[in-house]
Design a protein around this nucleic acid. Structure first.
Lengths: 204, 204
DNA sequence: ATATTTATGTTGACGGCGTCAATTTTACTG
DNA sequence: CAGTAAAATTGACGCCGTCAACATAAATAT
């Protein structure tokens, strides 16, 4: 009857694929990107070092799956933040999303790195591609709501917004910002300039 | 007489430390971050795999040195770009530096990654720290020239500018921008909003 | 000049990694 | 109840970074 997650273990393990993903997320949370290892994922899942092969052809496929989950989780948090924005205007929603974006990245630094850093491997799986694309669409729509969807440069303006929040997130995660400059206040101040910057450009 | 680089080889190798750094840069240029290996650096320098130990206690120290060179090179290019700016105003210089920043990162993606990505290792050497700090100071001064050095939020505004260019650079390097959005024109358009954004905030 | 000390490199080993091939165990299916 | 296919184990391979022991060559001291 039951196939994947229930208490019954239909196969040898019963849900190794899912267990590997969860183990990987735990490892990232506990020890950061450098402690992530395929063999350690297997250990935590209680299987031998070669067992993952049946569910993920290479370690990059597992990383891609974890990255996809990260995009999905972030998308949920951004949507919630937009709905909970103090001002329900398009601007208010965009600013709330921007703040939530940086908050997600700094709260889950290793997962965020797994989402964005190609280490090289372009083993982008369909799931990863879809999740990343959905997150991009979410951002693009929020920008379009601010500047008007008919604007021919909506994509370019979305890229601007994306670069700003991703830049802050990356710099904070890598510790490359002088102390005191990665705070919510500083970021909120920078985000405040975003609507004007988005609107003021590209109409030329 | 001659000690370090000349044709004479006073020691066993004569300049292994420098040769390792250069080999590392070559590897990054040719094969990207994932092909960088301490043993491969040693191979290219023509020494055994353990020889680097005498010059760099760990591979992270070598990475830090290469990262430091990257910061120094970038700083030179930014200064040259500012001096060659079409408009010699503070704004013109800042915009030229921003464009040069993204250009450097995309032209040397692996070196840029080595400069910024901590892989974890906080083996920051004095040289690395000094070079990174100098680059930050350069940016801060350019921002101060635009908005006025007496502004109490110069650092925070510099962080804003830093995040924007670093965000673009990172997204492009990691291939996370939809095709066509990493072009010079799009970036120039975003940079154009920077002076107004920097000035318009934080005076409150 | 010779001896000693120090710096530099080599060799070989260690454990950990990702991947693969061969094999065994378990579940599904006709 | 077969027979097949899926899932997992074992053991090996070649890499990697690091270390300890040893060898060599340069600098220094006597």
């Amino acid at each position: 009857m039951d196939r994947a997650p229930p208490n019954k273990k239909p196969y040898h393990h019963g849900g190794l694929r899912e267990a590997l993903v969860q183990a990987g997320i735990d490892i990232l949370t506990e020890g950061g990107l450098s402690s992530f290892t395929l063999r350690e994922c297997a250990r935590r899942a209680g299987v031998s070092h070669a067992a993952p092969k049946n569910h993920f052809p290479t370690v990059e496929h597992l990383k891609a799956e974890i990255g996809a989950r990260g995009f999905e989780q972030m998308q949920r948090e951004l949507a919630a933040a937009a709905d909970a924005a103090p001002s329900p205007s398009a601007e208010g929603r965009l600013l709330a999303m921007g703040a939530a974006y940086v908050r997600f990245a700094t709260a889950n630094p290793a997962a965020y790195q797994m989402m964005f850093r190609d280490q090289d491997s372009f083993e982008r799986t369909p799931h990863y591609s879809a999740a990343a694309e959905a997150a991009w669409t979410q951002l693009e729509e929020a920008v379009a709501a601010v500047i008007g969807a008919e604007r021919p440069d909506v994509e370019a303006r979305a890229a601007h917004a994306f670069a700003l929040v991703h830049g802050f997130a990356s710099l904070i995660i890598d510790g490359r910002l002088p102390p005191g400059l990665g705070t919510d206040a500083v970021i909120a101040q920078s985000l405040a300039s975003l609507p004007a910057a988005l609107r003021g450009l590209g109409t030329a």
